[in-house]
């Protein structure tokens, strides 16, 4: 067993120890695992399935259903570009374009150095601030394509 796999299994084990063996906790458990590991590696899902005595197909079904879960590694910083109607009419597309250019990745992708993951969302409920980019949970409002570079630098 590689050290990486062992680390994953230890992390999952620590999460499982805090929960009863009840399928109802599956989502919470996966959330905790993702918080620890930043994504849900294959080994983690296998371990959750074994530890919870829930079929792997069930765990996989839940893990793929929610957009909040990622089966691929995610970056240290999470960028959510709001594509809701209000942000859209105020130029969210241009903002997204510029971020994609700056980072060299498309929406839904992660930079190779695992620094940034870029995702679009359909509304973050802050329409008056649009266009909005949410970086690691922090809302950056009235974004313009010119401000993008500064925004990215501020999070290094």
């Amino acid at each position: 067993m590689t050290t990486e796999v062992r680390e994953i299994e230890d992390s999952v084990g620590a999460v499982l120890a805090r929960y009863q063996r009840d399928e109802g906790f599956l989502v919470s458990i996966l959330q905790d695992v993702q918080t620890k590991l930043n994504y849900l590696p294959r080994e983690a899902l296998l371990k959750v399935s074994q530890g919870m005595e829930v079929p792997l197909s069930r765990v996989y079904s839940v893990a793929t259903f929610f957009k909040a879960f990622s089966l691929k590694p995610r970056g240290r910083h999470l960028l959510h570009v709001c594509m809701g109607t209000a942000c859209h009419v105020r130029g969210a597309v241009r903002v997204l374009d510029r971020i994609e250019q700056e980072l060299g990745i498309g929406s839904g992708e992660t930079t190779r150095d695992l620094e940034y993951t870029l995702e679009t969302v359909n509304c973050v409920g802050a329409c008056a601030l649009g266009p909005v980019v949410v970086v690691d949970g922090e809302y950056a409002g009235q974004m313009t394509s010119d401000k993008v570079k500064h925004l990215l630098e501020s999070f290094d």
Binding site: L45, L56, S57, Y60, S61, F65, F66
Partner: peptide, 25 residues
């Protein structure tokens, strides 16, 4: 056995084995 399940949300929903490659169950 629960070897298969419905995966992905919305228009991507489909029947699949875990990870599309694990047929252990």
């Amino acid at each position: 056995q629960s070897a298969i399940s419905l995966v992905n949300p919305g228009t991507d929903r489909e029947v699949a084995i875990p990870f599309y490659d694990n047929s252990d169950a």
